[in-house]
Design a protein around this nucleic acid. Structure first.
Lengths: 345, 345
DNA sequence: AACTCGACTGTAATCGATTGCATTGAGGTG
DNA sequence: CACCTCAATGCAATCGATTACAGTCGAGTT
């Protein structure tokens, strides 16, 4: 495998390896005649650089590593896709790892990426606390950007959305639809996303005077199954509130399904909202009202930050950027259209 | 970045780099005392092997490359997950690439993986014909296994399911539910999956005397949108048959949705089947009857073949294996339960 | 006592591409 | 004509880990 080396090209072209390298990486001066000879030889032999050797010499791999909690979560999948496209434009490639929501596996992946000399790492940490040591340590060695989720007390770059602003929109919309009580179904508070979204939820609920019973804040994980289980529990323990605010679409999909299974009409009797706007939220019955994250924008910012950090080198790592983009509410059929608005003079 | 090298560990431990290497890679004999010193020094310094350097020397990277047509297709996502787990057991990592269903991008990815000295490649080709040159060429350089889809006239290993057997089950089930006519909605015939599934569909339809109008075989792509569009076209051009057999779940999800949108009850008026058993097929309304692919098994076989091929080296590449596993029909609510069976003496 | 054997350890070559430095030679200048 | 400049090119070191080969040393043999 990988038989043709620069030395063989050099021999065939009758020049030194240095010259071949100069031609192929367009660095340094080479006469037109020699350049033609070299290119010809390279083509004839089907030469291809050995990225490994180049990486060893340059300590640059033109590869970025990405670690996500779960590759089967459609939100992360499409985020990955966006990142890949953004990187493609810079001629970089993506090395993708799945942490299976386990901080230990995550730590191993991060170490492995670092050992592979990736130029930078994009990570959405699995856990707000337990992921911290590995993330912090990795960030000390190479450029690192956190995406969507982040670890506590972090000092790295971060790109995501303004969850609080998003929840404000969600709550206002539910309120317009007549909701006067609501439950929150999320994953654990150790996920920054759930934590932030819950904070936004709680604050706006208070402002709008929407009732939130303490035992109607249910925390599990980001999965359809948990959405179903949470609703079953709510029903068993005293019934559903006017609205179910879910921390992501998977949960909301499960919740909606469970509501219907138990004979509650959505959105007539219970309104349900999700978060992320994954493709299937559109297909559910009823189609899910949710928060759309500007994935391409998020990805582009992350790639930009990474590039900037690579240039700055270890030298003067400037202050770290926290970029939060404003997401938009996508109203579909799992919530009610605005009621006749209250009198306004 | 990556500051600590084996030389520094050697110096600190007062031995040669060779000894350090021997300790750390557990090869060769080293006295217990020296081993302890070396490990201590390595720990103190936080040494981590430079995988790049090792790869250059060994021309082994313990990394496998995988190329899929689309990372946002849930079927491929879960296949990727299965492959990752299977590789993890062998201490190998996965380098994932998205070909965006474009054979040219696919070719570039394959070349890039080869240049990175991956130990092997798992690919699900985007196109039955156009993907062929790149796949073939790559297979000549290193171990390669095709998964699920394959290119024409291929001489590489392949692992997938027996589409014909699966379609037989599907058609029998639809027939039991009373279907006497059916349409087929797939992607292009240049995708081996659609081609095989269609072949199985057509053969069993004939045997069961299920009518298939020539203009009711619709080919587009693997997407929800295409499923919706195809049904719209069927309705516009003369109405729906008794059953819609879709080449994958995304299409089936779209088809179901379109049926309902146009006022056709599923499964009462039209039965719909999918293929792949992605997670959301369970959540659709009605839950989708589909074909479950044994993903873990497929992944495990692929990894096994790759390992075997690596051992055989270029020497005597034995004959290539085509492993087809038998999938199982998952009956849910988008098809009808069996009618009273016809008299059987 | 001389020799063999094997366990340990070190020296240096190697993987393939890149690049600082040296060299060559053509063209220009006084 | 001696001397200088600069583009073009080659030589050889380098990135970091691995490993063939060789050397050392103590124990066991004869």
């Amino acid at each position: 495998m990988q038989r043709v080396t620069i030395a063989q090209v050099a021999e065939r072209a009758g020049v030194s390896t240095a010259t071949v390298s100069r031609v192929l990486s367009r660095r340094g001066q080479v006469s037109a005649a020699v350049e033609r000879k070299v290119r010809r030889a390279a083509d004839d032999l089907g030469y291809q650089v050995n990225v490994i050797a180049r990486a060893l010499r340059n300590s640059r791999t033109d590869t970025v590593g990405m670690v996500v909690p779960s590759i089967t979560n459609p939100f992360f999948t499409s985020l990955v896709e966006s990142v890949e496209h953004a990187l493609g434009k810079e001629g970089k490639e993506l090395f993708l790892c799945d942490a299976r929501s386990d901080p230990r596996i995550e730590a191993r992946r991060l170490a492995s990426l670092a050992a592979r000399n990736v130029d930078g790492i994009i990570v959405s940490p699995s856990h707000g606390v337990d992921s911290r040591p590995a993330v912090q340590q990795t960030a000390e060695r190479l450029p690192l950007v956190q995406l969507d989720r982040f670890v506590d007390d972090t000092t790295t770059d971060w790109v995501g959305v303004d969850d609080v602003a998003a929840m404000r929109q969600v709550m206002d919309h539910l309120h317009d639809g007549g909701a006067r009580s609501a439950a929150f179904i999320g994953s654990l508070m150790t996920h920054s996303s759930t934590e932030q979204r819950f904070a936004g939820f709680r604050r706006r609920a208070e402002e709008l005077n929407i009732e939130v019973k303490p035992d109607q804040v249910l925390l599990g994980d980001y999965s359809v199954e948990w959405g179903e289980a949470a609703v079953a529990r709510l029903i068993a323990e005293g019934g559903l509130p006017d609205a179910l605010v879910c921390a992501d679409d998977l949960i909301a999909l499960g919740a909606t399904r469970a509501c219907r299974a138990h004979g509650f009409a959505v959105p007539r009797q219970v309104q349900v909202t999700g978060y992320d706007d994954i493709e299937f939220s559109r297909l559910a019955e009823p189609a899910l009202t949710t928060v759309h994250q500007p994935r391409d924008r998020i990805a582009a910012e992350a790639v930009r930050l990474l590039a900037a950090a690579s240039l700055a080198k270890d030298a003067e790592r400037g202050p770290h950027a926290h970029i939060s983009l404003v997401p938009t509410l996508v109203v579909r059929d799992s919530t009610r259209a605005a009621q006749a608005p209250p009198d306004r003079i």
